[in-house]
Amino acid sequence: MPLEQRSGDDQAALLARFAAGDRRAAEALTELIAPRILRFAARMLGDLTEAEDVTQEAMLRLWRMAPDWQEGAAQPATWVYRVAANLCTDRLRRRRKTLHEMPELPDPSPSQHAQMMQAARAQALESALAHLPERQRQAVILRHLEGMSNPDIAAIMMLGVEAVESLTARGKRNLSAILAGDREALGYDDDH
């Protein structure tokens, strides 16, 4: 079974095996959870180095929690997402507010045009995400970039499902407004 498809029970079983001293279980959990946490943290913070620190800290807390993990509690991945979200919030509060400028568009050569445009679009989105209120940003990242379900996001953000739906809708609307002026420059026509 691919790691990404392991259920919460599988994750809990892996965690129990790790708590019993099985290091291979730690490797499996790392492959399963850490990349997702890194993606989430990188998009929340807009800084890969800080995101790596958050990922390491969140996983460390999972290792420490392993002996006390209770059956029937939240999925380990959900729990780590929640820890990472809190760590990101702490860092965002500490961080001095900086202005996120839109990236300079590259001067494309025909052979690299598509690839560079794709990178520029991704960069534009990252910049726009930084302008969203923190909770909206969390919800949009988890829903639209991580592809998580609303109940899972609700568990991570400790909210009701309706509140998550509202946050993601408002977040996406705000993103559209922020990016509206860049659509043409980034190669999107009016139909998208």
Partner: peptide
Amino acid sequence: MLFLDAARDTPPELSASLRK
């Protein structure tokens, strides 16, 4: 939203050093 598609296609990868 195509911006979201573009961001999904370029995710940061877990580096070997971080995994270690």
